[in-house]
Amino acid sequence: MSEPLVLGADVGGTSAKAALIDASGRVLGRGRAAGGNVNSSDGDPAGNIGAALREALGDHDPARVAAGMIGMAGSAAVPQKARRVADTAWQLAGLTGSPRIGTDLDIAYAAGATGGDGVLLLAGTGAVSAAFTGYRLTKRCDGLGWLLGDEGSAVWLGIEGLRAAVAALDGRGPETALAAAMVARLAPASPTGDPRQDLVAAAFRVPPARLGELAPTVVAAAVEGDPVAERIVTAGCTALVRTASVVADRPRCLVLAGSLLTTPGLVAQRVRTDVTVRFGVEPVVAPDPVAGALLAALRAADFPIPPDLPARLRAALDTTAVRQS
Rank of each mutant, 00 (worst) to 15 (best):
L122H: 01
M182N: 05
A203C: 11
D106F: 01
L121S: 06
V255E: 12
W90I: 06
A46Q: 02
L295A: 06
R231Y: 02
W146G: 00
E151P: 11
L169F: 09
P174W: 07
S15A: 12
G35F: 04
A131G: 10
D249P: 00
A297V: 02
A239Y: 15
G29L: 14
G152V: 14
D44H: 06
G13P: 04
I232G: 07
R250A: 10
A9R: 05
T320A: 15
G102F: 08
A108P: 03
D117L: 10
T133Y: 13
P174M: 06
A248L: 01
R84Q: 13
R163L: 09
M1K: 00
V241Y: 08
V246D: 12
A291V: 00
A33R: 03
R272V: 00
L169W: 07
E151K: 14
T88Y: 01
T262V: 13
A77D: 13
L240V: 14
S245G: 14
A164M: 02
V277E: 14
A187C: 15
A286P: 01
L294M: 10
G193F: 09
A113T: 11
P287V: 06
A73D: 07
E175A: 15
G12R: 09
L295T: 05
A167C: 04
A184D: 12
A34I: 01
A51H: 08
A286E: 02
T176R: 10
P62F: 04
P264W: 04
A181G: 09
G71V: 00
E224Q: 15
R252K: 08
R323I: 00
I21N: 06
V255T: 09
P251K: 11
A110M: 10
A34P: 02
A110W: 07
T263D: 03
A184S: 15
A154N: 12
